[in-house]
Design a protein around this nucleic acid. Structure first.
Length: 477
DNA sequence: TGAAATGTTGGGGCG
DNA sequence: ACGCCCCAACATTTC
């Protein structure tokens, strides 16, 4: 390798130019830089879900434009990343591949395979406040409980400050061939179901920065209370930008710390959520199998129900429980669901329907624009009670109670379940409590205009408690 | 970042 | 006036 051989910067979940240590290092080197994105088809876990593919299309489009403005290009390739990249290194005479460190099992596997095939891979800090594996207990092991992890994260040293985008990138003498982004067909066509996504989101680094600014100025101060109310714009909605690395966790952290409300409870609660994300990344780093296996092995033997019909009703938002259905429809239409409602809907799948959490996790991965291996498996294991520091098995959300508590006027439900638009205040969370005559005057026919409940929550709760406690008994005896 | 069952307390109606 | 009961309100325990 000569000192002037080009460097490949491999973009993965870091589709930004600012605060990108690998890109910055390549730019600083003065050597020609070849930015590359590989649509990895080498593993079924590597292929993004349908909503993520839509987002990815637009992100790559924008990243390509941003690189062009620096006199560079984005080279697109599709295939098995671990075979395709060594070929590209040979083809371009590149001296090394620079990439952002990832916590995702598939991406770490690719890194290992590349090294085994003789490619020089240099990993630089990725999209974390602290590098995965770097926050450890006094004994040197991973934290398994959030609170001490959180305490350790808040202590020194703080996350490093974000770095600016490079001002220019040296181009290679000859550019390698690139795929045509449109030919990847990442966007849905038949039918084009992305209308709701287009209305709800603007992907890209610039839009992520605007979203952060808007959130800090309008909602951060009240975040601690408002984040639980799905009818309010109380959350940051930064999750898809974070997942694709269009904004970095360090940028968010430092912007929040320098905001006028930095000392208030709202910003503290917000930063705590960032640390939850960090906790999930760290856990996945230490336990890559948590994507498909419960962290508490006694759950391996749990007798999950097999019920295609129930799963489909949940997926389509036709369970007869308005808060669950509202959430599942918001997800289907916009690629996103409010976090409070994610917990309620997940609890319903796992506890009320007793369907395998992996079925829920797979659906979320396919339909969320923020679908993320770490946060998703962590969240599902948390709700199920099979994770570390997870909710105990007897914590079962009551969907009607949760709706009354966090959507007291029913605005969120009415927004996503228009069949219930006329149902008065308290009944919208539990329309079955209305008298048949009352339902009649609202034009509401349970089982016709809106589904009947597919299970009775009180009975389902008792069955869940019995099943989950039986599993605990079997394990401890 | 639960909910339901069970226990306790205290005010008020009532004989 | 007093004890008794009821029950809402709150606290604690249990799943």
């Amino acid at each position: 390798m000569s000192a002037s051989s080009p460097l490949i910067v491999l973009f993965r979940s870091d589709l930004r130019l600012a605060d990108h240590p690998a890109l910055a290092a390549a730019a600083r080197s003065g050597r020609p830089v070849i930015p590359v994105f590989v649509l990895d088809t080498g593993n079924r876990h590597a292929v993004p879900g349908a909503a993520s593919r839509w987002w990815l299309h637009h992100s790559l489009h924008r990243l390509s434009d941003s690189l062009a403005a620096l006199g560079s290009r984005l080279i697109l390739r599709r295939g098995n990343a671990s075979r395709l990249l060594p070929e590209l290194v040979r083809e371009t005479g590149a001296g090394a591949i620079l990439a952002s460190r990832s916590h995702e099992p598939r991406q770490r596997t690719v890194e290992r395979l590349l090294r085994e095939s003789g490619v020089a891979v240099t990993l630089l800090p990725g999209n974390h406040l602290f590098e995965p594996g770097s926050v450890v207990t006094g004994a040197g092991g991973p934290y398994k409980v959030f609170t001490p992890f959180h305490r350790a994260c808040l202590g020194p040293p703080p996350p490093p400050p974000p770095m600016p985008a490079p001002e220019r990138l040296a181009a290679p003498g000859q550019w390698p061939e690139s795929d045509d982004l449109a030919a990847w067909a990442l966007r849905p066509t038949h039918p084009d179901w992305a209308g709701g996504l287009r209305e709800a989101w603007t992907p890209g680094e610039a839009a992520g920065a605007v979203r952060l600014r808007t959130f800090l100025d309008r909602a951060a101060a009240a975040y601690d209370g408002a984040r639980d109310l799905p009818a309010e714009e109380g959350t940051s909605r930064l999750s898809p930008y974070l997942h694709f690395g269009e904004i970095s966790a360090r940028q968010i952290w430092h912007a929040a710390m320098h905001h006028r409300d930095a000392d208030g409870p709202g910003v503290a609660a917000f930063l705590r959520e960032l640390v939850w994300r960090e906790f999930a990344c760290h856990l996945l780093h230490h336990f890559p199998h948590m994507v498909q296996s419960p962290l508490r092995p006694e759950f391996d033997a749990f007798p999950w129900n097999q019920d295609e019909g129930a799963l489909r009703a949940w997926q389509r938002g036709e369970t007869g429980y308005p808060i669950v259905d509202a959430g599942m429809r918001q997800l289907w239409r916009t690629g996103w669901m409010h976090n409070r409602v994610r917990m309620i809907a997940a609890s319903f799948l796992v506890k009320d329907l007793r369907l395998d959490w992996r079925l829920g996790a797979a659906w979320f991965l396919d339909t969320l624009v923020d679908a993320d291996a770490a946060s998703n498996s962590f969240g599902w294991q948390w709700v199920t009670g099979c994770g570390t520091d997870a909710a105990p098995y007897f914590r079962v959300f009551n969907p009607a109670l949760q709706a009354r508590k966090f959507d007291p006027e029913g605005r969120y439900i009415r927004c996503w379940v228009p069949e219930l638009g006329n149902v008065p205040g308290p009944h919208v969370a539990e329309p079955w409590t209305m008298t048949p005559a009352g339902r009649e005057t609202m034009g509401l026919r349970l089982g016709q205009s809106y589904p009947d409940r597919i299970v009775d929550h009180a009975e389902a709760r008792k069955r869940a408690l019995a099943a989950f406690s039986r599993m605990n008994d079997v394990f401890t005896v």
